[in-house]
């Protein structure tokens, strides 16, 4: 159960957009995983995009695209993108390692989502700066496809 202070702090987090576990009290370890990647730094937003369907027809195969706006030059490129599932039994989904030879920092794959949840992507650039993107995917359960 949440106590009053956590609820208030949680709402504050929501209001001011501080990094917070997606579902307080039910953290699957995603908070820790994100923190290990960011080292406590606050990531920027706007250069990293995480594209997934709003509604997944089946949670077992959900397409995912990460893309970072970057010159991908030897001195300025994306090194790593981490994808985190906040509502799966385990938080880690994938880590993509890019290099200047990638040309464009984009990767596509397909993932499993146990239920409706937020998926978070984090990118680390060669200068150490961080970017974040987050999207909510609704997973349909029930009927013959679920």
């Amino acid at each position: 159960m949440w106590n009053r202070r956590e609820v208030i702090l949680g709402s504050l987090g929501l209001v001011v957009g501080l990094p917070r576990p997606a579902l307080a009290g039910q953290d699957n370890g995603s908070g820790k995983l994100i923190e290990a990647f960011t080292g406590g730094k606050t990531p920027g937003e706007g250069k990293l995009s995480l594209t997934m369907p709003e509604i997944a027809e089946n949670g077992n195969t959900v397409p995912l695209t990460v893309r970072v706006d970057s010159p991908m030059s030897p001195s300025d490129h994306v090194q790593e993108v981490l994808v985190v599932a906040t509502g799966n039994p385990a938080p880690e989904v994938a880590r993509f390692h890019f290099s200047p030879a990638s040309g464009v920092a984009q990767a596509d794959t397909r993932m499993r989502l146990a239920k409706t949840q937020d998926v978070v992507a984090l990118a680390r650039m060669s200068d150490g700066s961080l970017q974040q993107a987050r999207t909510t995917v609704k997973v349909t359960i029930g009927g013959c496809g679920g």
Binding site: A94, S99, S102, A107, D108, M111, R112
Partner: peptide, 26 residues
């Protein structure tokens, strides 16, 4: 001969893994 792209996969990746990436060969 040079590592240009890599991916670490967790069990959350679907069966029959699909991976798409880019390459700028000079």
């Amino acid at each position: 001969g040079t590592l240009v792209f890599a991916m670490d996969l967790a069990p959350a990746i679907s069966a029959n893994p699909f991976i798409e990436f880019n390459l700028k060969p000079d």
